[in-house]
């Protein structure tokens, strides 16, 4: 394993991301509330470019104490949505909200002295 510096942390605002190809290794780096997470840019569905999709907050359904529908709202949990067919993954965990076995592959990421470093699979 080796690490590659991809740029400055302050260039990615909260709720935004950057996807880079480091040679042939594609990784999406997300700023999720000031914490950086990174995933391989491969969707477990059909290999789509998941990290290049749009971010939506998770939709929640609100029920009252009688289990009756009150309404829909956006919750605090952010999802990255694969642009090929819409599979959604929790930005913090990389896991699909309805199937814990369907998840994005985590990539180690660190911010050191304001720079973002991501771990790449092969020594360079």
């Amino acid at each position: 394993m080796s690490a590659v510096r991809i740029g400055k942390a302050d260039e990615i605002k909260d709720g935004d991301y950057r996807v880079v190809a480091i040679d042939r290794f594609e990784v999406g780096v997300f700023n999720n509330g000031g914490r950086f997470v990174a995933y391989e840019n491969r969707c477990p569905h059909y290999d789509g470019p998941v990290c290049q999709g749009r971010i939506y907050n998770r939709v929640e359904e609100v029920l009252d104490e009688r289990q009756c529908h009150v309404g829909l709202r956006f919750g605090a949990e952010r999802h990255i949505v694969c642009p090929w067919h819409g599979w959604e993954f929790n930005l913090e965990t990389g896991v699909h909200p309805g199937d814990k076995h369907m998840k994005l592959k985590k990539v180690n990421v660190e911010v050191l002295d304001g720079d973002i470093w991501v771990e790449t699979p092969r020594p360079r």
Partner: peptide
């Protein structure tokens, strides 16, 4: 993490899809 060898990997930005 090991330190990056200057200039070794090629880093290309991939666009957001819309």
């Amino acid at each position: 993490m090991d330190d990056q060898k200057p200039g070794s990997p090629q880093i290309v930005d991939l666009p957001k899809i819309d």
